[in-house]
């Protein structure tokens, strides 16, 4: 096992021991933390199986050449536009964007497009934007998009190209 995996296991185990002791001693914060844990776990596990099923289908059916052509090294500026549209469809939160980004990457999308995907997923997911505009007004949302989207694309290009030159690679999530 990798060292980071062992640390993860220890933190999680320690957490549950703490919750157990808190429960036995009637320690109130422990119960609130447990309540937070379960309510977020339920929300997340409602989404995760469906999302991973789609990731699996994507891996099997979508040809590498298709992804390479539209999001790969030779995709040009259109690649960024495609991936921003794609990011708008993300459900749940940014935590789901990482496995999706990895799938795109393993099919040949270039790094700068991957980083644009992550940035844009944070900025213009459709359900989230609808919420934002209804509570804070259209003007707020439009300004935020106009400022942050170009900055995301520029910084993603810089970071992506820099890392690509250094031979950086994503790992499979462990």
């Amino acid at each position: 096992m990798k060292r980071s995996t062992i640390i993860t296991v220890f933190i999680i185990a320690g957490y549950f021991v703490f919750l157990g002791v808190a429960w036995l001693m009637g320690y109130n914060p422990g119960q609130q933390i447990w309540h937070n844990f379960t309510s977020f776990a339920v929300e997340m596990f409602k989404i995760l199986p469906g999302a991973f099923i789609l990731i699996g289908l994507f891996e099997v059916w979508v040809k590498r050449e298709t992804v390479e052509k539209h999001l790969g090294e030779k995709s040009g500026f259109k690649g960024y536009l495609w991936v921003i549209l794609l990011s708008g469809t993300l459900v749940g939160g940014l935590y789901l964007a990482f496995p999706v980004a990895y799938s795109l990457y393993s099919k040949g999308a270039k790094l700068s497009v991957i980083f644009t995907y992550l940035g844009a997923a944070a900025i213009c997911r459709v359900p989230m934007t609808v919420f934002e505009a209804s509570f804070l007004g259209i003007k707020f949302t439009v300004i935020r998009w106009l400022v942050s989207l170009p900055l995301v694309i520029i910084t993603s290009m810089l970071l992506g190209n820099y890392l690509a030159r250094r031979g950086y690679k994503l790992s499979a999530g462990e």
């Binding site: 999680i12 995760l48 099923i53 699996g56 289908l57 999530g173």
Partner: peptide, 15 residues
């Protein structure tokens, strides 16, 4: 595809 889904999911589950 379902096998890939399950494998990916289990791998990232601890995180």
């Amino acid at each position: 595809s379902l096998k890939i889904a399950a494998r990916r999911f289990i791998k990232i589950l601890p995180a």
